[in-house]
Amino acid sequence: MEEAVKAGKMQDIGGIKLYYEFVEKPNSDVTVVFESGYGCPSEYWGPIKDTVGKFAQYIMYDRPGLGKSEKDDRPKDSNQAVENLRTLLQRANIKPPYVLVGHSIGGINVRLYASKYPEEVAAMVLLDSCHPDQNIILPPLFDEELRDNYFKQFIVEGSLDDIDASFNEARCRPSLGNMPLKVVSAGLQSYHTKASHTAWNLLQRDLLHLSKNSKHIIVENAGHGIHIDQPEAVTSVIQYTIEEINF
């Protein structure tokens, strides 16, 4: 049976409409949910979406004010992002269980989703995910130019205050028990000094403590945008994760 593609739809989540693409695969047991990095529209999943669509159904979407989604005045913290996503999934009739795939700040969003609604989440894949303590630990290790650029970036989608609120929300949530978790980290030193990259790697390894069923995977020759630099490696991790939970 051919897979059905529902692309380019808008869904009202209560006051605004979000753009999403859903590829439905008959008899699929789970849905892969892509959660983008800071300021990134859903098109950033382009390098892996078609390959993932060969073995799983998936949804990718634009958060408010990004890509083709409408803007709104609601907070831009992770708690609001989680509720927006959950409303989208429910109103688009995309039922759980989900495999949540979060990149960068999207990693904070999906871990918050998984801790709030664990009964809806089958597994989680973090792609060079943010860590709640990074704004405390990393900036002193940046050089002046890098520190300036780091803090100036938070104007596209939420402010630095929104980011700090998101980190606090994630920090206060309980662990994920035995939920399958893959922590996928970049092998290259992009956007880092040598010292901050060492600290970043320690923060990445700390994410393994979110679940008792976790695994750390370092993707060589990939920077922060792992799924863009090494799409085959990322799709392999997602496929393996789905096969593991369906075993």
Score class of each variant (00 low, 15 high):
Glu3Leu: 15
Lys6Asn: 06
Gly8Glu: 09
Ile16Pro: 01
Tyr19Ser: 04
Lys25Pro: 00
Pro26Val: 01
Pro26Tyr: 03
Asn27His: 11
Ser28Ala: 14
Phe34Asn: 00
Gly37Asp: 02
Cys40Asp: 15
Trp45Tyr: 02
Pro47Ala: 05
Phe55His: 11
Ile59Leu: 13
Tyr61Ser: 00
Tyr61Ile: 01
Pro64Trp: 14
Leu66Tyr: 11
Glu70Met: 08
Lys71Arg: 14
Lys71Gly: 10
Asp72Ser: 12
Pro75Asp: 09
Leu85Cys: 05
Arg86Leu: 06
Ile94Val: 06
Pro97Leu: 07
Ile105Leu: 05
Gly106Cys: 08
Ile108Leu: 12
Tyr117Val: 14
Ala123Val: 03
Asp128Ser: 15
Ser129Trp: 15
Cys130Tyr: 13
Asp133Trp: 10
Gln134His: 08
Pro139Gly: 02
Pro139Phe: 04
Pro140Gly: 02
Leu141Ile: 12
Arg147Val: 02
Asn149Thr: 10
Lys152Leu: 05
Ile163His: 09
Arg173Leu: 09
Ser175Tyr: 08
Asn178Pro: 04
Val184Thr: 01
Leu188Pro: 00
Ser196Glu: 08
Ala199Pro: 01
Trp200Leu: 09
Leu202Gln: 09
His209Cys: 03
His209Phe: 10
Ser211Ile: 01
Lys212Cys: 03
Asn213Tyr: 05
Gly223Ser: 09
His224Ser: 10
Ile226Met: 11
Gln230Arg: 14
Thr235Phe: 05
Gln239Val: 02
Tyr240Asp: 15
Thr241Asn: 04
Ile242Asp: 13
Glu243Lys: 13
Asn246Ala: 12
Phe247Thr: 15
